[in-house]
Design a binder for these strands. Structure first.
Ligand SMILES: [Mn+2]
Ligand SMILES: [Mn+2]
Ligand SMILES: [Zn+2]
Ligand SMILES: [Zn+2]
Lengths: 138, 138
DNA sequence: ACACTACATTAGAATCATTATAAATTATAA
DNA sequence: TTATAATTTATAATGATTCTAATGTAGTGT
């Protein structure tokens, strides 16, 4: 249970004004032990339930995009209809459970080293993402 | 320059009726030496230009989805606004040039082996996709 | 405390890729 | 040829995301 002050500082230190909406979203996203994955609609639901205040959808999008730009969140690529975000911003990869539509972290020791041997002149690597799609056995 | 008969057989052999729309799309997708990547809107444009006949957008979607289900096409995951397809259906990975919004194949020798050491009980791996995002240097 | 201004929130509209609908057409088998 | 199911099509619907423009608010300076 973190103090709001922690989030106010976090926001201020990256040039974002600590509004009550942003603090509320911070509490839902960052006031917990484990990182997790969510979609905008997940977040929307959690804000309606766990929290009481009503935050407009536009603000939810604005905030999540601001947080992503500030490096508080990672955007995860699944060619699904919706975008997923990750509060784990470290370099890591994912299982995507197609049955449950859920992302699961792959830690460094869950995956061998990825070596990219091809180099394109004039280009630099921005990120390397591994997505392992899984489904129910049988 | 393949004969239409090739495509008629291809379609029939997988239980798809060889309509003129499907044959036309086959010609654009499979009547060439190199494989390539495309979006639905790319294909729509090519059908309008290179080919003369008008094929409705619904049919383009239907056909591409049918071809994907039959294994003629691979769907590529980029969290972009649109879905990309690949006429190279072999197991391979990609660069995605964020500047040009273009996919580039990574061959087996361009990438070290991917080892997944984590196993989830009751789940099986459906696919492993590596996406290397690149941008212009400097 | 007050006023100013840039930043932020908001409801609602717009966008746009994709999917659904339902009527007309066509391929194929009987 | 006729019957049937598959396919095409125009068009509407969907749904995530972005845009707009009006209103509200946080921080700064007086
Ligand atoms: Mn899709
Ligand atoms: Mn996006
Ligand atoms: Zn993760
Ligand atoms: Zn490819």
């Amino acid at each position: 249970m973190k103090n709001n002050h922690v989030f106010i500082e976090k926001l201020r230190s990256s040039g974002l004004r600590p509004t009550k909406q942003r603090i509320e979203i911070c509490k839902l996203l960052f006031d917990r032990k484990d990182t997790f994955h969510f979609s905008i609609s997940d977040l929307e639901n959690n804000l309606e339930n766990l929290s009481n205040k009503k935050i407009s959808l536009a603000t939810i999008y604005n905030t999540i995009h601001a947080f992503r730009e500030k490096g508080y969140l990672k955007e995860i690529s699944i060619n699904s209809d919706k975008t997923y975000f990750d509060t784990n911003t470290s370099d890591h990869h994912h299982f995507f459970d197609e049955s449950k539509k859920k992302l699961i972290d792959l830690n460094d020791n869950d995956l061998g080293k990825i070596k990219i041997k091809k180099i394109l002149p004039g280009k630099k690597i921005k990120s390397v993402e591994v997505l392992v799609r899984i489904t129910n056995d049988k």
